[in-house]
Design a protein around this nucleic acid. Structure first.
Lengths: 283, 283
DNA sequence: GTTCCGCATGAATCGATAG
DNA sequence: ACTATCGATTCATGCGGAA
């Protein structure tokens, strides 16, 4: 009954990914280190070098993704010299040359964005969630993310996922999707490509860069229980944890030992089967 | 006293713009015909040809814009063959080669977006508002667009009004206004780069591409009364009307006679000075 | 137990200062 | 001139302690 499984890799995803088999992942959801951010990991990539650094990774991701799978990339360009950098635009164009299809761009509206005031600019309150696919036909389970009709625009995604989670816990095992669809009535509407979420800040033990509701939403939308979810920039493991809670198999790769250990401890104690790999074991 | 002024041109903006003097416009706000839309105007530009078609126009806009001026471009790529087209990305990159600075990208969240359902895609609820400038320093009047703070302001307002009341009672006479402005500024926050506006679903005679509040917001933000606002793709004249209502001078160009006439009749009867130019007069 | 208030905390950005 | 570092700015959120 407990079919889910977690594999955590400590190492550079540029190397670890090469060991993965072709066409083996249903969903890749990741938030890579933004340019000039996280200087202690991956050396704090300069905006001018970002595309060259990232393209070999997306090439591996293209290989390991199933033909019906989806790659969701959370990213936002920073301001350099008073201008928005263009590396995200260039990345999209280059990934298409690799063979990716740029299917859609979701907007994550961060209600609580970073404060500050500047004479020529307002606060940045949104990030891109770029959807890439290998084929025009891909798996998408739209009914799983329907929202109450009334004030669906105001309804917080977080509330929805909380509701779903408790509902899941009350029902044991099989048929996650079916149960959800049973609960759905004609009062449910499909969402749009704009997501409203607040970042989890404050005294949280580990402040994740995105709320868990974000990977949850895309995992529900693009996978079924038993499918494989991959996060090549695991961080503290939000994506992997979300996948575990929803009974998907998951694979996480993290280059920094402290984050790797943090993810391990966060995930330990769950009912899932865990496997750990150090960089040496992979090679 | 009535210093505002409207000039409407009937003709192709590729030609009309060449007659305009350098550095004469404070704000350009426009929503160009989307690729493959409005097939009877401008020849129904194919997505593949969109950038080549638009670049000569942006080059003219760069010339007529004042050094401290701003160009706001409302645009969204359409889906072609299951993929988002890349012409907007390419346009940004090419405009930078022309000398434009890509200062910012605002998101217009359309609360009531176009209905519909597709098997592999949700409804598109947002559009880009690309801000371009000629220089890092440009005119921006941030105080004009401040918004009430979050629900946090409720309790805050109550407390402040309490203290203010006692203060007012203790002080005789003047000082009231000062207090007012104090808690006004405290309860007003600067907005972010995400705009929440519903589309106007009113008259289907001329379905405006955007609600009048959209150009209004940018006109308030980037111009002062008496400044010059230009819309090279006037349509039914939403931008020009907004500028007139806010006592800015405005210039509109429209290639389609029926839209040109519609804008004329919409704007006529106002208190402003109107000047009309047909294509022949321009040449 | 509720509700209310105080407080720390961010994938930020600019401008000035220092090498 | 050109690049690295630092302080100042600012607001939604969630937690913890207090009434």
């Amino acid at each position: 009954m407990m079919d889910d499984q977690i594999k955590l890799y400590l190492g550079d995803c540029r190397e670890v990914l090469t060991e993965f088999p072709d066409n083996s992942v249903d969903l890749i959801f990741t938030s890579p280190p933004y340019a000039d951010q996280r200087a202690n990991t991956y050396g704090g990539i300069h905006p001018n070098e970002y595309v060259d650094w990232f393209l070999p990774i997306t090439n591996q991701l293209l290989r390991v993704l199933k033909p019906t799978g989806t790659f969701v990339l959370n990213i936002k360009e920073k301001v350099v010299g008073g201008e928005r950098s263009t590396y995200v635009l260039e990345l999209i164009l280059e990934m298409r040359k690799q063979g990716w299809l740029w299917t859609e761009e979701f907007i994550w509206h961060k209600k609580n964005c970073y404060p500050g005031k500047w004479p020529n600019r307002f606060r940045d309150a949104w990030e891109r969630l770029l959807q890439f696919n290998k084929n025009k036909k891909f798996a998408m389970y739209q009914d799983t993310v329907r929202v109450p009709m009334g004030d669906w625009a105001k309804t917080r995604l977080k509330n929805l996922s909380d509701t779903d989670r408790t509902r899941d816990n009350s029902r044991v095992g099989s048929g996650f999707g079916k149960n959800i669809s049973n609960w759905l009535t004609r009062d449910m509407a499909y969402p749009t490509n704009v997501l409203h979420l607040a970042t989890e800040c404050g005294n949280r033990k580990h402040s994740a860069v995105f709320p868990k509701a974000l990977p949850e939403w895309f995992i529900k939308l693009f996978t079924q229980p038993g499918d494989v979810v991959l996060d090549p920039f695991m961080g503290s493991g939000s994506t992997v944890a979300a996948a575990r809670n929803m009974e998907r198999k998951s694979v996480g790769i993290e280059i920094l030992p402290e984050y790797y250990e943090l993810a391990r401890s966060n995930l330990d104690g769950g009912a899932a089967t865990l496997e750990f790999f150090s960089a040496q074991e992979v090679k």
